[in-house]
Simulated scan of single mutants.
Amino acid sequence: MAIKTNQMPFKESFSEFYTKVKSSLDDGTFAKLTLAKTIGNSELMNIYVRPIMDDALLKLELKFKFQQEEIIEIHTIENAFPRLLEFINNPFLSAILFTTEFDLTYKLNKKRAVSLVEQFPTFGNANEVLLEYLATKK
């Protein structure tokens, strides 16, 4: 388990974190990405991210989970970054990248200092069957 604390502004540090997301998509270890731990009582509770095929291209489905509804957006891998960045620090204080090699948690504390915590992987597979299964559980 590695803990790395970073005094970079959260936008720069989230960019570093998202590089790991893209790497896991490239090397086939990506399982899922979740934005969680909101500030206060937010209507938006989570954002779940998973890869999908759209027009024969690998893209990302962003599922915005609100208290009363869900909204789905489809983005290219590059365009998903600025869309997700809008929600870091408002309302989300954490993002968790689940891969078959490790889980990486991006956290902002009350002073908005960033920490990255690497842990043992939650998921052993990143195959299509698992992704389909996870989609049905959301």
Rank of each mutant, 00 (worst) to 15 (best):
Asp55Gly: 09
Asp55Thr: 05
Asp55Lys: 15
Asp55Ser: 12
Asp55Gln: 14
Asp55Leu: 12
Ala56Pro: 00
Ala56Tyr: 05
Leu57Asp: 10
Leu57Trp: 02
Leu58Pro: 07
Leu58Ile: 12
Lys59Trp: 01
Lys59Ser: 15
Leu60Tyr: 03
Leu60Cys: 05
Leu60Glu: 02
Leu60His: 04
Glu61Tyr: 02
Glu61Trp: 01
Glu61Lys: 14
Lys63Cys: 11
Lys63Arg: 09
Lys63Leu: 11
Phe64Met: 08
Phe64Arg: 01
Phe64Gly: 00
Phe64Asn: 06
Lys65His: 14
Lys65Leu: 12
Lys65Tyr: 05
Phe66Tyr: 15
Phe66Asn: 10
Phe66Leu: 08
Phe66Arg: 03
Gln67Tyr: 09
Gln67Pro: 00
Gln68Lys: 14
Gln68Arg: 12
Glu69Gly: 00
Glu69Thr: 03
Glu69Gln: 08
Glu69Asn: 09
Glu70Leu: 02
Glu70Cys: 08
Glu70Arg: 11
Glu70Pro: 01
Glu70Trp: 06
Ile71Gly: 00
Ile71Tyr: 09
Ile71Arg: 15
Ile72Trp: 01
Ile72Arg: 08
Ile72Phe: 03
Glu73His: 08
Glu73Lys: 10
Ile74Ser: 12
Ile74Pro: 00
Ile74Gly: 03
Ile74Cys: 05
His75Ser: 07
His75Gly: 00
His75Tyr: 10
Thr76Gly: 15
Thr76Asp: 14
Ile77Val: 15
Ile77Ser: 07
Glu78Gly: 01
Glu78Ser: 14
Glu78Lys: 15
Glu78Tyr: 02
Glu78Gln: 13
Glu78Thr: 13
Asn79Thr: 07
Asn79Tyr: 03
Asn79Ala: 09
Ala80Phe: 09
Ala80Cys: 13
Ala80Arg: 02
Phe81Asn: 06
Pro82His: 07
Arg83Tyr: 08
Arg83Trp: 03
Leu84Glu: 08
Leu84Ile: 13
Leu85Thr: 10
Leu85Arg: 11
Leu85Lys: 13
Leu85Asn: 09
Leu85Val: 08
Phe87Gln: 10
Phe87Thr: 06
Ile88Trp: 09
Ile88Leu: 10
Ile88Thr: 10
Asn89Ala: 11
Asn89His: 07
Asn89Gly: 02
Asn89Arg: 10
Asn90Ser: 11
Asn90Trp: 06
Asn90Cys: 06
Pro91Glu: 02
Pro91Gly: 05
Phe92Arg: 09
Phe92Asn: 10
Phe92Gln: 12
Phe92His: 10
Leu93Ala: 01
Leu93Phe: 05
Leu93Asn: 14
Ser94His: 08
Ser94Glu: 15
Ser94Arg: 14
Ser94Lys: 13
Ala95Pro: 01
Ile96Ser: 13
Ile96Cys: 14
